[in-house]
Write a protein that binds this DNA or RNA. Structure first.
Lengths: 221, 221
DNA sequence: CGCGATTTTGACGGCACTCAAGCGCCGTGG
DNA sequence: CCACGGCGCTTGAGTGCCGTCAAAATCGCG
């Protein structure tokens, strides 16, 4: 997963990864308030992170797939600030953070890589802020689908056909919309023959026109 | 600024800070696309960061004051992903990032501190995402004012009376609202005697009721 | 097959956006 | 000194997008 490291470095890093953990669908990887010890690298599966509001409802802050790193938000307070929940059976590697810091002192490229990952998360969040702050419902959904498409492609899956792991409500929570609005936006894009929707199965028929829907060129990572 | 370092460490860090830079009101600290060399610690003043959209309009991603660190987003691509513009005459310390990484290898507490700062930025962004995704105009403005209030308090200024450095349009851009909506929300809070608004001068008369306006307890940092 | 969860679709209403007018402040120039 | 014009701010009226409420359809699963 960590790009830009040589074999030796990867091996050293491998020693840090204390053990793997399986989380079945619906299970928690960590909860808000629980103490922070480790980062988690996703080996397989699909997770969401969400913060709970006082009234019980939840806001999804991200969807995460293979190769991504979870728990970065917890470094600051040494307490997790969100829940991480598996949307399908998943497998993660636990990376004790203290060890990671220690080892990264001897491997500059690893440290640099780690810093880039944190920075990329900040850039990603800015992209989402842009989306939430200035896009309409249809633009948000287009942006979301294109983002998923790109991430599937990077992992060797089809960029034009994939299964959503999350519900309309979770998509809506992430995009700052109600589930009905998400559903309507799906239907609208389908009416225009840009995508084909069959419940959770999405097929992108015209990726160029989908990109046009999202006036903005910035693509959330 | 950096909390949690001892005197010796602070001195070492001081050596890293190559030189100070003054930016006058309206001036750029850095621009989108310019190459990344250094982080910037704000010594004094007030800056905004914003990303430009293709259509020329801009979305403000943050307001930044004394003691805060700018440029974290640029680490990932080694290119700045946003503009940083001074909203009043400001002074920053330039911190060459390569040097910071190098030195942090010998001072674990500095490295840890840096990681916490990056992590806090991620948490902050999640707070903004929550705000943009689920709050109404008045709640957003209340949240914004309380955030400013707290940050002024932390710096030894009054928490109940301060000057806004930014325009209504910039506030709106940050909060995902149009300037007219921001203005109306100010007026409404004033009508309820919760705040007193005199152009850029804000006085918080009833901080408890202002907190109530923002149903959510999460406070963006 | 039957139930609950999820999704779709429709009708309606409200909040925020758009368009527009007017005010106050301030720097410039007559 | 004062008139003028630009800019930022406020306020009003009307519109439209999206949230709310509701009902029906479909899916998933035992």
């Amino acid at each position: 997963m960590p790009v830009g490291l040589n074999d030796q470095e990867i091996q050293v890093l491998g020693d840090v990864v204390s053990h793997k953990r399986k989380i079945q669908r619906g299970g928690y990887l960590h909860r808000t308030g629980s103490s922070f010890q480790s980062l988690f690298a996703i080996r397989s599966g699909f997770l969401k992170t969400c913060v709970l509001e006082e009234d019980g409802r939840q806001q999804v802050t991200g969807f995460h797939m293979t190769g991504e790193l979870l728990g970065l938000d917890a470094i600051s307070t040494e307490t997790h600030t969100c829940d991480a929940i598996a949307l399908e059976d998943s497998e993660v590697c636990e990376i004790p953070f203290a060890k990671l810091e220690e080892i990264s002192r001897t491997i500059p490229s690893l440290m640099r890589h780690f810093h880039k990952i944190m920075s990329r998360e900040i850039v990603r969040d800015h992209g989402v802020m842009l989306l939430l702050g200035s896009m309409k419902a249809e633009e948000r959904l287009a942006s979301f689908l294109l983002n998923l498409s790109r991430r599937f492609l990077m992992r060797g899956y089809s960029e034009s056909e994939f299964n959503l792991r999350m519900t309309r409500e979770e998509i809506g929570s992430y995009l700052g919309l109600k589930l009905e609005t998400v559903s309507r936006a799906f239907s609208k894009l389908q009416d225009e023959n840009i995508i084909t929707v069959d419940n959770k199965r999405i097929q992108i028929n015209d990726i160029a026109r989908l990109r046009l829907k999202m006036g903005n060129s910035s693509c959330i990572t």
